[in-house]
Write a protein that binds this DNA or RNA. Structure first.
Lengths: 160, 160
DNA sequence: TATACTCGGACACAATTAATCCGAGTAGCG
DNA sequence: CGCTACTCGGATTAATTGTGTCCGAGTATA
């Protein structure tokens, strides 16, 4: 099992968007991270579809965070980019084969699936406990406040 | 992100192997679950490579649990079948682009990766808290004790 | 000793992910 | 008011991973 690599890009983009309240084009975000501009667009579209960021079209358009960074959790981003479905899918294997459990006896989910989904819930709960604002703060304390400040001036300024 | 479907098969096989202390051939496990015998073999090989089950070759060979069901956790099975690597891979995106963080400043992992890995740890911890014996007990209470007992006689008996 | 049955790894196929391109739409400017 | 330049958005194509299958090596049995 490997998570889609686009999740990493999307998270970094959200953190960067924290530093700018004016629309930032996808091309600029791609150049900042040195990644494919066309593919990054796909992830940003997924974020826009989930209403985490808002797209502004036109000449000086781009993307802006829809909500405050404190109210955007990592779970929101993961669900938007990587899909909302559960990672473990139960194929109801107990209803097949010579010892198949009759369908009417399957009122509760299979114990195997229940345990796997409980673990997934723990994962989601941990993701929901961290917000984009938390990440931005961590970046500040790690790389120093001048890092995001410099990025902000680079984003708003026209220099490429 | 979707977990490999073989994990479900492997877990069910481990639960079934609880009911038999004599070697069970892969073909019989496949017939019991009504799945592809050839493909199930792949998953069982992965379990054998991780020393969760032991393979017995020869005429009346098959697979047996290596350890007691109480000491085999779901995490063991998931790691064996789905790979031990982390689901989130950090590509060190912070070291790229015009505002790249210098490599010598990257002593601690990227905050984004740290948060994602913390969530993964919560997931693994939940998986490690459940054992195959727990699942077998849940199956007993759900489907009644006669279910696993019937399977046991079917496994040891030659009828196919 | 021959045999029949087992596992084990090497070999094709399909689905998902990654990456790219071009068209639709809008804000700014003359 | 029309034009241009810049933006996003979805449809299209390559690469990787997961899925499924096959045949050969090895061993306990008779």
């Amino acid at each position: 099992m490997k998570m889609s690599g686009g999740v990493e890009w999307a998270l970094h983009c959200c953190v960067v968007l924290t530093a700018s309240n004016t629309p930032v084009p996808a091309a600029k975000l791609a150049e900042l991270h040195d990644v494919s501009s066309s593919y990054l667009a796909k992830q940003l579209q997924a974020l826009a579809r989930a209403d985490l960021i808002h797209s502004v079209q036109g000449k000086s358009g781009g993307y802006v965070l829809t909500r405050a960074p404190e109210s955007i959790t990592l779970l929101d981003v993961v669900r938007a980019v990587d899909g909302p479905g559960p990672t473990f899918v139960c194929t109801e294997i107990r209803q097949r084969g010579p010892f198949a459990t009759p369908a009417d006896a399957c009122t509760t989910p299979c114990p195997v699936a229940r345990a796997m989904w409980a673990a997934e819930d723990a994962w989601r709960q941990a993701l929901a406990a961290v917000t984009i604002a938390d990440l931005a703060r961590d970046v500040d304390t790690n790389s120093g406040p001048e890092a995001l400040a410099g990025i902000q001036t680079w984003l708003t300024g026209g220099a490429g």
